[in-house]
């Protein structure tokens, strides 16, 4: 299914292929503020879902935006979308963070496991609980699968965009998202009724 990709696509259009960034590089402070308002919510949503931690997400968003300001004077309009570039930087920073966790500072088992028991997360049939359950299940996925699934199904990126962001082929993206979805369904399998889909539905 090829869904509409509202958030990333709209922002990319609004940015007019880097025109704002060029304006910023020429001293337009309003262009800089506009870019922050366009890009940072998307980047923050992605980072929060991938890292599962708001404070860490803020760090990587901040770092990504600083890198963007740094390259602004050298930006060549029309060669790439600013949003794709930013997502790519962000994806690399998230990958670095996840690797650091595996490097012994944080036990990977602690990271990979859902922060709360999935059953308890979906006991209350509210939207918030469903969201918690989905995000908990997302945290059980391998890093690359989680990044691809978040980009494809939550951030609304197309497969070619994800391929550019993750620096892999489109087929690899399809494979990652397919395996990620299967793993998500497996993680949520025991909670069909709580999540609103049962065998008789």
């Amino acid at each position: 299914m090829d869904q509409t990709l509202p958030r990333a696509a709209d922002a990319a259009d609004d940015m007019a292929d880097g025109a704002l960034l060029v304006a910023y590089a020429n001293g337009d402070t309003d262009a800089g503020r506009t870019m922050v308002r366009l890009l940072s919510p998307m980047l923050f949503g992605y980072a929060t879902r991938v890292l599962g931690d708001r404070a860490e997400a803020e760090d990587v968003v901040q770092e990504t935006m600083l890198k963007l300001w740094k390259i602004a004077p050298d930006w060549r309009q029309g060669e790439a979308k600013v949003s794709t570039w930013a997502y790519r930087v962000m994806a690399n920073l998230c990958t670095d963070r996840l690797r650091q966790r595996r490097g012994g500072q944080v036990n990977i088992d602690d990271v990979a496991e859902p922060p709360a028991d999935l059953a308890s997360a979906v006991e209350v049939m509210t939207e918030a609980a469903r969201s918690d359950a989905l995000n908990a299940a997302l945290q059980t996925l391998p890093d690359r699968q989680r990044q691809a699934v978040v980009l494809r199904h939550l951030e609304g990126a197309t497969n070619p965009e994800i391929a550019r962001i993750m620096d892999i082929g489109v087929e690899a993206v399809e494979s990652l998202t397919a395996r990620g979805k299967r793993a998500l369904k497996a993680a949520l399998a025991g909670h069909k009724e709580e999540l609103g889909y049962s065998d008789d539905g």
Binding site: F44, G45, T48, W69
Partner: peptide, 26 residues
């Protein structure tokens, strides 16, 4: 449903990012 519940960025953090953008202007 989750797409409509994107993690909200705090106003303080947004303001900090905007201030950094202005400070870093070439």
């Amino acid at each position: 449903a989750e797409r409509t519940r994107a993690p909200e960025i705090s106003p303080e953090f947004m303001a900090r990012l905007e201030a950094e953008a202005v400070a870093a202007i070439p």
